[in-house]
Amino acid sequence: MRHTLAVLVENNPGVLARVAGLFSRRGFNIESLAVGRTENPAVSRMTIMVEADDRVLEQVIKQLRKLIEVLKVQDVTKEEHVDRELALMKVNAEPAKRAEIIQIVEIFRAHIVDIGRKTMIVEVTGDEGKVNALENALRPFGLKELVRTGKVAMLRGTRDMTTNGKEVEE
């Protein structure tokens, strides 16, 4: 099963190598990894997608927690959460095909962010399924380039990482 892990780390040089190295040397598979700073400049947040059964997942989480610079690890897969991914797709777009592409882009509430002589760049944000669906819809036109950021995720409502997934008392 695929899991989405939210990982808070100290924003130090080398911390990405520590996390990535842990995955590779213990034979865990990273499907995607997105990292950036948080509301606290000293803390970065990674969203890691990992394909693992329960036993492996438990090891992944425990081994991550052993890293000194890892502050918090949470599996948000089964929690109520929002996840989003952004993708840029450069698609073949001869003038005759453009109207059709624009129509598809509108259906997906995506955007066209660049138009070249024979291509357009489409920007889409959404959950994985939506990005996959758009990719499949545009593929027949000829996808020249595709880049995806990897998923970022956040718990819904008042719960947050600092309360470890438990409801905050209001």
Partner: peptide, 8 residues
């Protein structure tokens, strides 16, 4: 001492 050893 190391919870990662449980079930490894």
């Amino acid at each position: 001492i190391d919870p990662a050893e449980f079930g490894k």
